[in-house]
Design a protein around this nucleic acid. Structure first.
Length: 453
RNA sequence: GUGGUUGUAGCUCAGUUGGUUAGAGCGCCGGAUUGUGGUUCCGGAGGUCGUGGGUUCGACCCCCAUCAUCCACCCCA
C-alpha cells in the first residue's frame, strides 16, 4: 500500500507536550476558580441525539452540527426517494446522533433527565470539547474546548454577579487584560417593542450586533432588507449612540423605554447587577453595551461577553441567562445562567502576548545520567527517594553517550542533572550540575534532597 | 455556504523571460570533546517542487482541474 500523507481533519489539531502543559495551566486555573465558588464537575457524552441538538441554536447553528451516520445498512431504511430527497430531510433519516455543539444544551438535557437526583440551585462546571462544522480561520476551530460554569434553578441576580466575579478572577490569574460587556435581552426586546416590531426581534438583534463592525449605515440597510420600515429604524438610531457612563446610558434608556414593561425590567436587572459592583471590588472594566446581542436563541436575560484588550481575536468568554432551556425537554420554570470560557482562544491570546509563566514548562526537576549497569543500580533507589519526596525525577534509560543524555536534559528543560560514576559511588557523593548556569558541585544525597525541596 | 490567499527539505522561506545538477537559515545526525548540554568550528543525511492532467524541444515557473492551507464574510468560544 502506498504511504499516504498523514493529516488531521480540517480545523482540528494535535497538541505537543509543551502545548499541553500550557493548555493544562489554563484548565487548571479555571477549574480552581470554579471550585472556589462551589461548582461541581459533570461530563456528558461527545455525541447527543440529534433531536436534543436541533433547533436550539437557530437556523445557522443547525447547519453547523456534525452529524453521525447511523451504523449498519442505513441506506436500506431510507423511505424517501433518494433522487429527489432534500439533503436536510435525508440527513435525518440516515443520522440520529450528532456531536455536541456547546455544553449548555447538553447540560439542560442532563438537568431534566436527572432532576430527581439534583438539589437546586445546581452549580456545575464542565470542561469538554465541542464541535462545529464551521470554516476554520483565525481563532476558530472545528474542535475546541469550552469551560462552562452554570447555575440552574435560581432566578437571583446574585448568580450573574458571581459569574462576573469568576470572570474577573480567572483573567486576573491568567494575567489577561479584559473588558466585560454586559447587556440584557429584555432591553433589546423592549426596544423591538418600542419601535413596533416585536416579532422581528431576532433580526433586529442580529443586525445591531454588527454595529461596531460594519457601522450604522450598513446596519440600517440590513434592517430595511429584513422588512423593517424606515420610521422604525429612525426610532432605533438614537438608542445606539447613547454615550457616557453605564449610569448615564441607563438613565436615557429608561426615558426611551418608559412604555415597555419588559424593557424597564431589563434596565432594572442590569442596574441591580451593576450596583453590586459599587461595593464589590473587581479589577475588570464592566461596560453596558447595548449593541451586544449574541446569536444564540435561548438567552432571555443578561448577556455577557468578554474581550481581550490587548489581542485581536473574537470574544474569549461569553454567556447569559436562559429562562426556559429545560422547558423544551419538559421541565418548566427552571431558569439558569452561565458563561463559557473559550480555552483555545485564551491560549491563542496568551501565546500572542507571550504571558505563559516560564516555569510551567519544566516537568522533570532532576535527571540522573546513566553510566552503566552498576551505576544505574546504585541510582535507582535514589531516584525513587526523590520521587517519594515529591520531586519529579527520572533516570536516563540507557547508558548512551553523555552528549545524548545531556542534550535530552537540555531539550526537556530539566534544571538539574546528577552524575554518578565510579568515583562518586566510592565517595558516596553526587555530582550535581545546574543546567542554567553550568555550575556543578559535589554533594551528598541528603544535601541534594534539601536543595530541591 | 460565499469570496480571496498560499502550497518548494522536519520548520520558516528564496528560486532570474520557461533552460543543464532546486538553494539558505533553523532543526536533525556525526565529529572536534570515548565523564558534560546550551555557545564555537568541521562534516553529513534529508526534495516524485501538494496531486492529476495540459501547453512546450524543455515546466518549480504558463493554463485547467482537484485537494489542502490560511484569511475575510455569515455565525461564533
Amino acid at each position: 500500500m502506498a504511504a499516504q500523507k498523514p493529516s488531521v481533519p480540517k480545523g482540528t489539531r494535535d497538541f505537543s507536550p509543551v502545548e499541553m502543559v500550557k493548555r493544562n495551566f489554563i484548565f487548571d486555573t479555571i477549574k480552581e476558580v470554579f471550585k472556589q465558588y462551589g461548582y461541581l464537575p459533570i461530563e456528558t457524552p461527545a455525541m447527543e441525539n440529534l433531536s436534543t441538538l436541533l433547533g436550539k441554536y437557530g437556523e445557522e447553528g443547525d447547519k453547523l452540527l456534525f452529524k453521525i451516520l447511523n451504523s449498519g445498512d442505513y441506506l436500506s431504511k431510507v423511505k424517501s426517494d433518494l433522487s429527489e430527497a432534500e439533503s436536510n430531510k435525508l440527513a435525518l433519516e440516515i443520522s440520529e446522533k450528532g456531536l455536541r455543539y456547546d455544553l449548555t444544551v447538553p447540560f439542560a438535557r442532563f438537568v431534566v433527565q436527572h432532576r430527581n437526583d439534583i438539589t437546586f440551585p445546581f452549580k456545575r462546571y464542565q470542561i469538554q470539547p465541542v464541535w462545529r462544522a464551521d470554516r476554520p480561520q483565525k481563532g476558530r476551530y472545528r474542535e475546541f474546548y469550552q469551560c462552562d460554569v452554570d447555575v440552574i434553578g435560581s432566578d437571583s441576580l446574585l448568580n450573574e454577579v458571581e459569574l462576573i466575579q469568576i470572570i474577573d478572577q480567572v483573567f486576573q490569574l491568567l494575567n489577561i487584560n479584559t473588558l466585560i460587556k454586559l447587556n440584557n435581552r429584555k432591553i433589546l426586546l423592549g426596544i423591538a417593542e418600542m419601535i413596533g416590531e416585536p416579532d422581528k426581534f431576532i433580526d433586529i438583534t442580529v443586525a445591531i450586533d454588527k454595529l461596531d463592525k460594519i457601522g450604522r449605515e450598513k446596519v440600517n440597510e440590513e434592517l430595511s432588507a429584513k422588512g423593517i420600515d424606515e420610521s422604525a429604524i429612525e426610532k432605533l438610531n438614537p438608542i445606539f449612540v447613547l454615550s457616557g457612563s453605564n449610569k448615564e446610558k441607563l438613565g436615557s434608556l429608561r426615558e426611551v423605554l418608559k412604555d415597555s414593561e419588559i424593557g424597564l425590567k431589563g434596565i432594572e436587572e442590569v442596574e441591580t447587577v451593576l450596583n453590586y459592583f459599587e461595593t464589590l471590588e473587581i479589577k475588570t472594566e464592566l461596560e453596558l453595551d447595548l449593541t451586544l446581542a449574541r446569536g444564540l436563541n435561548y438567552y432571555t436575560g443578561a448577556i455577557i461577553e468578554v474581550k481581550a484588550k490587548d489581542a485581536e481575536i473574537g470574544s474569549i468568554c461569553g454567556g447569559g441567562r436562559y429562562d426556559d432551556l429545560t422547558g423544551i425537554f419538559g421541565l418548566k420554570d427552571v431558569s439558569g445562567v452561565g458563561v463559557s470560557f473559550g480555552a483555545d482562544r485564551i491560549y491563542d491570546v496568551m501565546e500572542q502576548l507571550d504571558i505563559f509563566p516560564k516555569e510551567i514548562v519544566a516537568s522533570t526537576k532532576v535527571m540522573f545520567v546513566n553510566f552503566g549497569l552498576n551505576e544505574e543500580a546504585y541510582c535507582l533507589p535514589l531516584v525513587q527517594k526523590l520521587r517519594k519526596a515529591g520531586i519529579n525525577a527520572e533516570i536516563f534509560p540507557e547508558s548512551a553517550k553523555m552528549k545524548k543524555q545531556m542534550t535530552y536534559a537540555n531539550n526537556k528543560n530539566i534544571p538539574f542533572v546528577v552524575l554518578v560514576g565510579e568515583n562518586e559511588m566510592q565517595e558516596e557523593m553526587l555530582t550535581v550540575k545546574e543546567m542554567v548556569t553550568g555550575d556543578q558541585s559535589k554533594m551528598t544525597f541528603e544535601q541534594l534532597l534539601e536543595k530541591l525541596s
